[in-house]
Amino acid sequence: MASSPGKQPAQPELESIVRGNRRSDLVMAGIGMIVLLVAMALLAAVFIDLAVKGWPRLINPDFYINFPSRHPEQAGILSAAVGTTLVMLVTALVAIPLGVAAGVYLEEYAARSWITDVIEINVSNLAGVPSIIYGLLALGLFVHAFGLGETILTAGLVLALLILPVIIVATREAIRSIPLELREAAYGLGADKWQTVRLYVLPAARPGILTGAIVGLARAIGEAAPVITIGALTFIAFLPPPPVQAQPPFINFEWLSSPFTVMPIQLFNWVSRPQAEFHINAAATGVVLMVMTLGMNGLAIYIRYRLRRDAR
């Protein structure tokens, strides 16, 4: 890379440098490949192990439409799957707008001062706080101080807090990667700051933002600790009221205040039961959870691909 001005090295010397660099490139690529393969193999091993163990339940449709039960072969994940879905809905609706807004503010509007520096350091640190701490915060704040109770709303809010830093950081990275020319062109046409952000910067940053959001949600879906702390249940054999209904006003929000359980808790409970049949259920639940996570990551990749293509 570095071209030394002045004295040009002799031809054979140059060739040996190039050869040496090629070799180290190859070695690095090899190391990278091995690390990647090890990581993939570990994931595959876990997945295959769970899938083989959980197979008898995975192929049984009852597993997906039954409530938990003391009979392992009749127990299902319905209440846990619905609980997880609704909690994720709340989390997404709260965390994405808040996180994107915070990211936009920090990147576009905030004046450089020590206060913004402190906020920035805090946001990065928050991403590393153990999830149980969020659970304790939510227990004190949402459950007791605000009186929201041990509900889907509380769980959605605590998981939203948990992934907020991820979304803020992703939004900022995405915005930062927008070329300056785009902004300057918008200003040149007479757009004000908000118009520039709304019409040019955000649409261009969308792939990065969505990736961040979905990676955050994929983390939230597997969390058990904060949800147990705020009082998610383990046995619940009924579903929350549906969010949509036939009579006006067609949507209702009663489900937000409903008790619930989520898949990681159901899994944890089955793993710790003495009967080996419950361990089959746990393995099957693990597979479903992994498929959901991988599915969300796949969706992120697809959206990014689509939006990149559209942007061209």
């Binding site: 003391r70 147990i228 998610a232 249940l233 383990t234 046995f235 619940i236 409970n269 710790s272």
Partner: peptide, 29 residues
Amino acid sequence: STVFPITEAMAEEFQKTEKGKTQVTVGIS
């Protein structure tokens, strides 16, 4: 969580006899 399996079994059967009129939730704090 030690008592949980018993209460779970009771809740399951009780809900059956109540035919959906009463619901029971069990946590493991």
